[in-house]
Design a protein around this nucleic acid. Structure first.
Lengths: 198, 198, 198, 198
DNA sequence: GATGAATGAGGATTCATTCAT
DNA sequence: GATGAATGAATCCTCATTCAT
């Protein structure tokens, strides 16, 4: 007789929330939908989280921390800047490939609605920008990237391009599929680094 | 006897709604807040609009139609593609410069939350993408732009970069100011067309 | 055809609230009970009052202001202090006779639970004490009342006696009836002014 | 090996409940607040008590029984009625002096809100009135007290005066302090027995 | 006895929308 | 057109109580 893996209801609730938020949207869904989806009692959501907002916060912060770590790790590598950007875009796109619901929630409900939430989220998001800016600035110092374009704008273009592609997938405006994911990584980086001009 | 300037209360309500949506967010504000801001009676909002949603819809569609027209007009010009993209980015950025509240509402409440609303918005948004895609594709056919990058991705990068810069301003993560607006136009186009690489 | 007296729904709600609070208690009753009793829609309660608490507040303050006015008026009369106390006790007891539900609510839910509410109530209650203290102090200065007993204690005894009698009626521990009301006024004043001792 | 002082968790919970009820009020506090204050697990409160109400009941009944016993004992003494009333007032005031939180809870949450609870409390409270009435009636028969004032009213005045003074202390409307306690005893009895009149 | 996770009914409050005037 | 009182469904959150360990 093997010992049963202990069930972490907190985790179950978070995972259920991802599905519900992705399906119905944060504002349209009810807390009871989350509880139902998780198969737990209504009140248990409030046992683990102070509010509906906090469920979303937790989801975002958990994942965003992983993203920040990935960017930091990438930044530390001894590779060309272009390769770093490829790795970062790749990480974000793979996050979507691996768990599209979670990324949908993060982009649609948090990243693109960050003003509704406290300044905490905006600061976290800015942390990611700052890390990527570091990558660009170092590349500019090393002469890999040209310096006419302020790093801040470069970052916005890069990150904006990625998020827009994900949004295209989320809204069904862009074809999805295994091939699409990999080519998206390449094309975004090609565009941002090489430019569209012939 | 001088002719009274006709007061268009419908317009007053729409303008008030922009300020309220920008300040409090579409979900957090109440219809009464709009009426208060407009200085009209509660019920009048419902005299002119079927619902709170319709107020936002109207705001979005009014402005988006202008944007589409601007893109169409630009597309028809006989100028290099890069110049066209500069005009389009310029138009969007000038829209923000001229009425930041309205653009904030359109981006934060509509463009980036389009899934909450009916498919109407998504289709309208996609119309803009399609027009810009036309610009890119023609440039590719003419050899102005290289063809390795699918036009669809190019558009996403271009539009995403613009929206991200606006978002940066909206969230206070990017320096604003008259200079910033003009240089933003240039830098976005430089990045997307010329690339970051040295 | 005579014009109908306009119905003041705010008043109707307040009056209904008195009955409901008296019957079920402030904590046990639901806002919907008040609306039902008043025969109005649920939301109307919130159209006129910010919260359930505020309904009780309004009831208390309305009536308490009348009490304060009555005490002030009595105090201004040129009559012996004992007569003044009789008038004050009489006013409070007549208030109960006239609208026992309202006085029950004020005593049970406000006066005797004033710590749950904001300091506003306590201050209002203290205002009544202060006025009565004035009556006693003047009587002491004039030699009508002896000075050994601090006015503050005298007031507490006087007011406490009245409230306790009302509480006795409310809880069914003391016989009620038209006779009882008048004799109560006399007996309370006799006790406080003349003392029990033979 | 020294014998451990036995820890009576039931007692610890009751004592914690007194503090919590006094601080936050019976209705506003949560059962978990009691457990926290007591430093015990949530469920333990329910191990010892059937419900939150029962905790309050226990507190009240425990103390009230002591009060009843004190009154009974006083009543049996061969001393003048005035002295008996002084002893009773003294006992209640000393109870407050010794444990103000407990008396606050009993007065604010039970004695003055007795209608919310079952008839049990009212009957217990009435028992005290009956005992004091006995004191007064005997005094009236013996000619110590005059008979015009029905004993029942005399009791209400006496007990009401005491409770009002305690309430004054509780609500901060009356000066407290060691001196105040003793003079309060004297003044209440002087007022009730001797009257205010010169 | 002791723990604290789990349950779920209950109720206040909000607010979009309607409608009589 | 204009007003704002009236409606009532929707839903978050609280918290007493139970129960498995």
């Amino acid at each position: 007789m093997t010992k049963q893996a202990p069930v972490d209801k907190r985790r179950i609730i978070l995972d259920a929330a991802v599905r519900v938020f992705a399906r119905d949207g944060f504002h349209k869904c009810r807390v009871s939908d989350i509880a139902d989806e998780a198969g737990v009692a209504y009140g248990l959501v409030y046992h683990y989280f102070k509010s509906k907002d906090q469920v979303l916060d937790t989801l975002f912060l958990e994942r965003w921390e992983v993203l920040l770590e990935a960017i930091r790790h990438t930044d530390a590598l001894e590779v060309p800047a272009e390769e770093k950007l490829h790795a970062i875009a790749g990480f974000i796109i793979d996050s979507y490939r691996h768990d599209p619901d979670l990324m949908k929630v993060i982009i649609v409900e948090v990243t693109r609605a960050a003003n509704s939430f406290g300044a905490v989220h905006i600061r976290k998001i800015d942390e990611a920008y700052a890390l990527i800016r570091g990558v660009v600035e170092k590349a500019q110092q090393r002469g890999e990237f040209r310096s006419e374009i302020p790093a801040q704008f470069a970052v916005m273009s890069f990150y904006g391009a990625i998020e827009q592609v994900l949004t295209g997938w989320i809204f069904g405006l862009l074809d999805e599929g295994e091939d699409a994911y990999d080519s998206a990584k390449a094309h975004i980086v090609q565009t941002i680094c090489g430019g569209l001009a012939a």
